[in-house]
Amino acid sequence: MIKKISLFWILLGLSISSGAASTDGAIQFMQKLGDQVIQTTQTKHGEEKRQALRDIFENSVHHTSIAQFVLGKARRALKFVFKEVDDLEKEKQALAHDVKNSLEEFYKIYKESVTRTYLSSFDRDYKDEVFQATHAKQDGEDGVVVYSTLDRKNGAPPLNLHWVLKSTEGGLKILDLRVEGVSQAEKERDEAASIIRKHKDQCKQDGGKFCDLAALKKLTDDHKTLNDEWKKKIRGEAISVN
């Protein structure tokens, strides 16, 4: 969860220095973020609420790092597409252009996917539910894991949410959310690996070239389709409410 408006956080006094992350600052960051999300869902409605949540999440997540993590080895495998062309400088330059554009397109679409995931997960009624950032632990050189709980209704046990944060020049950013020990980034990477493998195998069977690149494009298309469907659904809900 997480989002935008770093300026907003700075104004709120949420100044987290870059460099080594402070665990106290990280706890504060997550508590304020959680409170902000809950407050937004309780005080705003419809498109206004969604836009406010979008702002929060977009500014709080380190999208590129997550996107690169999700691609994993598939991103590095793109190097090998250059071996599939003859040693013609011009052809390789064109391919490099394609690879660069495809990666940028993926990052762009994936940023929207992350926002969609957080929005759909947290855009709900938090009545009688309490979010509490309890403690934090230093994680690597510039990372912090913040431990939090969300008390739930209907007899469901409290949810343990662990946030992996990274200190950046723009303040703390979220890298991963672990729900009851399950990493969302790892889940996303497993999904991506499954899609990439499927399309790469198919491409090879069809005798295609640049299959690593083709699989990346397919993965981007799949995310784009899901994002578009979600936008359509949101628009439909807005129309039915009006």
């Binding site: 993590f69 990372g143 990274k166 890298l175 991963d176 672990r178 990493s183 790892e186």
Partner: peptide
């Protein structure tokens, strides 16, 4: 789970 270093 992957820690912050896994994203570097």
């Amino acid at each position: 789970a992957p820690g912050s270093d896994a994203f570097n």
